[in-house]
């Protein structure tokens, strides 16, 4: 167990280091943006005195490194600062938004991941026959069509024509779980269609790769049927590449759903970010950037840790 634990610890340390570097990049990036925060708050007609006062109040006269460290230190304590545009506490606004985004991502993942893996297994089982070809064709088509188009098509068919679910995915704390689920049903459908193809194709490829191994022949010669061979003997050996792609897609579900949120006017992180980018609200952009980076790095770290732990050679050294 020793070597696996060591690798996991190394991977976690690396993830934290990466996050620190990214925080630096985000800070530098926002500093490089043209324009002056004080100017953008006070407008073109501000007097030089008012601008100087504003800069002093915002701490903009401090050296960049000092500002970075204080920003980072506050962020670590959960204080992400206040939004310039409306003066609200960013952490407060984000936590509600983040909850919504995670809620949507969670339900999309609950449906998409098992479905993708099952379809991948099915494609291997019927390799090069019509079920395989159909699964490939449908998932590839759905990934090729722009997601907003799928969104509108589904909204038209399911929401407008069939009237199964509401077209606008508004949720709030007052709703019951059932109401919430009904409300996000359509965005979940779209997201599922969008992330299915990657995961399904990787499952198929990873398992087919393993199917060439001698131990698959051993399993077949034990008289197991094809699905038992695939599920019991091939799948456990292809977990690592599959988990990697699954985690990339989960990360996408959290940080990349801006378009879907806008299409369905869903109150998530994406929309929040877009709003504040348009208004040049630097503290909000920084906070969102940091959170998204943390999600991305965290999920990829989980993928790597699962890969390490799924390798019996590392789990059970000689």
């Amino acid at each position: 167990m020793g070597s696996a634990l060591k690798l996991v610890a190394q991977r976690v340390a690396l993830g934290l280091l990466l996050l620190l570097l990214v925080s630096g990049l985000i800070f530098i990036g926002t500093q490089l943006l043209p324009g002056d925060v004080a100017q953008s708050i006070l407008g073109q007609s501000a007097t030089p005195e008012a601008l100087a006062n504003m800069r002093r109040d915002l701490g903009l006269n401090e050296p960049a490194l000092t500002r970075y460290l204080s920003w980072l230190f506050n962020a670590l304590q959960g204080d992400l600062g206040t939004a310039l545009t409306n003066g609200q506490d960013i952490a407060d606004s984000i936590s509600g938004r983040m909850k919504n985004t995670l809620f949507l991502a969670f339900w999309a993942a609950i449906i998409a991941v098992p479905l993708a893996i099952f379809l991948g297994l099915l494609a291997v089982r019927y390799r090069d026959r019509w079920p395989d070809k159909m699964i490939s064709a449908v998932t590839l088509a759905s990934i090729s069509i722009p997601e907003f188009l799928i969104g509108y098509v589904i909204m038209y068919v399911v929401g407008v024509k069939l009237r199964w679910f509401p077209s606008v995915a508004m949720i709030n704390d007052g709703m019951s779980l059932g109401e919430k689920l009904s409300s996000i049903a359509m965005p979940v459908m779209v997201l599922t269609l969008v992330v299915l193809a990657h995961m399904m194709r990787m499952t198929r490829a990873a398992i087919l790769n393993v199917m060439q191994s001698a131990y698959i022949e051993t399993a077949e010669l034990k008289g197991l049927n094809r699905f038992q061979v695939i599920f019991r003997h091939a799948f456990p050996n292809s977990v690592a590449p599959i988990v990697n792609v699954v985690m990339l897609n989960l990360a996408y579900l959290v940080v990349g759903v801006v378009v879907i949120e806008v299409v369905f006017t869903y109150p998530g992180m994406g929309q929040y970010l877009v709003d504040h980018v348009a208004k040049r609200d630097v503290p909000v952009v920084q906070a969102c950037g940091l959170l998204f980076a943390a999600v991305y790095i965290g999920l990829n770290m989980v993928a790597d840790i699962v890969s390490i732990l799924s390798n019996p050679r590392l789990r059970h050294p000689k």
Partner: peptide, 8 residues
């Protein structure tokens, strides 16, 4: 060595 499943 190849005929045994390494994961089991």
């Amino acid at each position: 060595a190849a005929a045994f499943n390494p994961a089991k």
